[in-house]
Design a protein around this nucleic acid. Sequence first.
DNA 1: CTGAAAGCGCTTACAG
DNA 2: CTGAAAGCGCTTACAG
Lengths: 351, 351
Amino acid sequence: MVKQRDRATSYDVALAAGVSQSTVSRALSGDPSVAAATRERIAEIARGLNYHVDAAASRVRSGRIGTIAVVLICPVQEDVRAFNPFHYALLGAICAAASARGLETLVSFQGAQDRLDNSYECTRRAIGTIVIGTSENRQAWDFFGASARAGEHIVCWGAPSDDLAWVRADNEAGARLAVEHLLAGGYRRIVCIGEADCPQRQFAERYQGYAEAMAAAGLPARMVEAEPGCSRHEQGRRAVTQLLAQGEAFDAIFAACDDLALGAMAQLRERGIAVPGQVGVVGFDGLRGGVLSVPALTTIEPDFAAAGTLLVDQLHAQLAGETGPAPRAPVALVVRDSSRGRGPSVAGVAA
Amino acid sequence: MVKQRDRATSYDVALAAGVSQSTVSRALSGDPSVAAATRERIAEIARGLNYHVDAAASRVRSGRIGTIAVVLICPVQEDVRAFNPFHYALLGAICAAASARGLETLVSFQGAQDRLDNSYECTRRAIGTIVIGTSENRQAWDFFGASARAGEHIVCWGAPSDDLAWVRADNEAGARLAVEHLLAGGYRRIVCIGEADCPQRQFAERYQGYAEAMAAAGLPARMVEAEPGCSRHEQGRRAVTQLLAQGEAFDAIFAACDDLALGAMAQLRERGIAVPGQVGVVGFDGLRGGVLSVPALTTIEPDFAAAGTLLVDQLHAQLAGETGPAPRAPVALVVRDSSRGRGPSVAGVAA
DNA sequence: CTGAAAGCGCTTACAG
DNA sequence: CTGAAAGCGCTTACAG
């Protein structure tokens, strides 16, 4: 057990400075009612004694917690390596946004059902919780959904649960951007790989944006459903296999997420179909894997910094009893090599 | 400001249970001196009142913090997306290991020099700090090095600073595994892409393991230095360009990290050199990008779970005043498609 | 501008 | 097995 040997307290500083303990407290908290000269002197002495305000004592007295909990929902097996890099980037953005607002972040990775925990708020370790992660772990989301119904303050990204307040990317706008980009590149027979009946609302929204943009161009929308039960990457592969087997003409793919797009590209490559020459591909997420793929993946990338800030601010709003408008993180088209720029219409496959 | 309306305290529970407040405290902390029946009853009543022990009050009285700080050193611009996925996986492993030890994790991403902070321990928000991240941000590492010299308890992964206690992968063993695998595949003219004079000690250690394994096989070691000032990926590309320009024979590359390997493979592809047919490639890190690359990258992967546990345990040892043996996370060879299995010697390039 | 005092909600010797 | 009491180290009215 580590003993707290000779930690200085505010009383030690007070003694050394010849003032009262309450003046030390006020001085170090920057209370302007303390004379500037006194403040300076006390700060100096505190430094000399290596004194720092005890955060726990400060909290218990002031009631100010200054901390938010961030929960990352993992696969049930809790393999953190299986955790999507998109969520890691989002975690970083949340921590940065919290820090910018003067808040600490208590982070936990939760997967196994018997270890789910949202006691942060009721034990006063945090003012509320931001939940992100794998939508596949339904039990975990149900747990946090119930927690929210019970009155805990929770905001999430990509909720499959309707019980949770959420922040999402501007999925429809992003999908429209993707389609408009493909149209500008001369692609016409653009299919969407996604999932219509998916717990992740973003998939439906992205299909919606795709369908709208196609309709606006007077072109038919066509959805290839991802096969349940396998990874996104594998789903992307199989969607292409299915498309080719059906012998239906297509010259571009808008995939509802980057992993689907990368799987689709892997399969196109195996079939000897040139990207972006014969088929253009656009994903959605802005994953690092898209930079490394061959060809590098054109994608729609949400503004991560904005997403982090929106999540933190939305939590604040909820704590203040407000319910602002549905918060959407802006998205941007990132053109890389899997789609052609402006050009004439392309051959496509199985035309 | 959020008021704490009607939070129950231990006094409320005591009143409802007809016992003293101290008995409530003992009962809920599982003190066996409280009769089991009484404990049960009190727990029941606490549940009914939605009472939970206030963590801050508990800490201030008991002195037990139960939290470690985890600092992720980012690039100075604090772009969390530029943060290496390896470190994200390590972060997850640390949080999981801490949780398994009953510790919370206070996570922060730190990059900009004027925002560096390690006041966790002195303000009693944490018992100590684990530091991981980009070795490029020297100022940040120097800051934490100074912090450690000043008596803070810090353990890091991949320290470029000698002031910090560290945990590392078993780099030499990993490099030997890589070389032995390549030798078994029939490769003989194996070059190492790395950096001899690098702040990251792991690079030197990996070269060392490579050189030993080559010597053991009676083969000459050959190091291609990464060019300073560009990304690892770009360094990998340029190393291949340089090798080809020199017209020196090689039939395999052991890259000191996956990003170097992926860059090297990208360049080999552009030059029309077949991997693994003409040249075998093995990386080091086990990044997700290696699964997606074409061909998928054979690599040496540290045991992330073990790494997280070692970091947490090493911090505990330091707090207890012990200095255990240099802690190494075990590594494993992950054979994918960028290297051949057993086979005859291969042609290589520029032979 | 500063001090004396109360008290945040607990844990933990001490006594019985 | 339980209670009365002290006290962890602060913040914050209140009074001057």
